[in-house]
Amino acid sequence: MLPNFTYERAGSVDEAVEHSASEGAVLHAGGTDLLGCLRDGVFTAEKVVSLSGLEELKGIQATRDGGLRIGALTTLTEIASDATIAERYTALSQAAAAAASPQLRNQGTIGGNICQRPRCWYYRGDFHCLRKGGDTCYAIVGENHFHCIFGGSGCYIVHPSDTAPALQALGASVRIASRSGTRTVSLDDFFVLPADDIRQENILEPGELVTEVVLPPLRTGTRSVYRKVRDRGAWDFALAGLAAVVLMDGDRVQEASLVLAGVAPKPWRAADAEEALAGGSLDDATIARVAEAAVSGAQPLEHNGYKVQLVRGLMEETLRGLEA
């Protein structure tokens, strides 16, 4: 049985901010990560603040500048089945459809998906690791098959989300509500590496919550895709994933945004690969160069070296697929 907690159903965003600012308060959106964390004792909750009554945080609407606004409580199923998102922000549609399982997509929200806690089995297990306030990372010399090849430092988790890389590649931002008002933060600046803060994966402080995700308008001719590689055909986290957003000018790549899932403690922008791709065409030689650039600087651990070749192949296949 879950440990005991008091339960508050917020009647407004302001109420949610107030309630969640207190010590030991946690936010409940879909609850699908929260309940797992509480059950595994990853953290404790004195108070659960439910957002589920906040209708203003649900739904998908066009913004005045031709972009899209998605309420943080919009479920992954709602996003995966939205025709506008499928057509214009394809990478997000595909990422949402590839996450978890049908039941979890029906309940899990986009806000919860980008804020979800890591799946590292030491973190989720009975190990008092660095991220939980202990003094050891068990993965460094342990079973690190599913840990990171980029961005690790002290802690070697991967960020588990599929939608976060897609959103970042599409240039999305999040709106964050707090006691001091609302602010907008680009996904590029939302996530945190262990070197900067080993205790949290994003910049949210107690008393802050994501209220919506905002997608900018994309220029005509922009194409995007999300490709997820996993052990199983469905219902599994990514061994590696790639969100690719490409704007073509004839047969030349005018602009490219390449963000990887499953390889780093945050969605990993393959900046060198983006640079190698910009201005080039999608021919075999360029693609090979881009794939090589994507893994430059990779620092595999004892058991996750396969991810290096996996990222190369993922980059090559995805880009070739875009050319078609």
Partner: peptide
């Protein structure tokens, strides 16, 4: 743990894992 689906029920016609749903929700 919300992984196997044996606890699936319909909530407003939509399949969900009842083990990952607070009753109050």
């Amino acid at each position: 743990r919300g992984e196997c689906g044996a606890c699936t029920v319909l909530v407003d016609g939509v399949p969900k894992y009842s083990c990952m749903t607070l009753a109050i929700e």
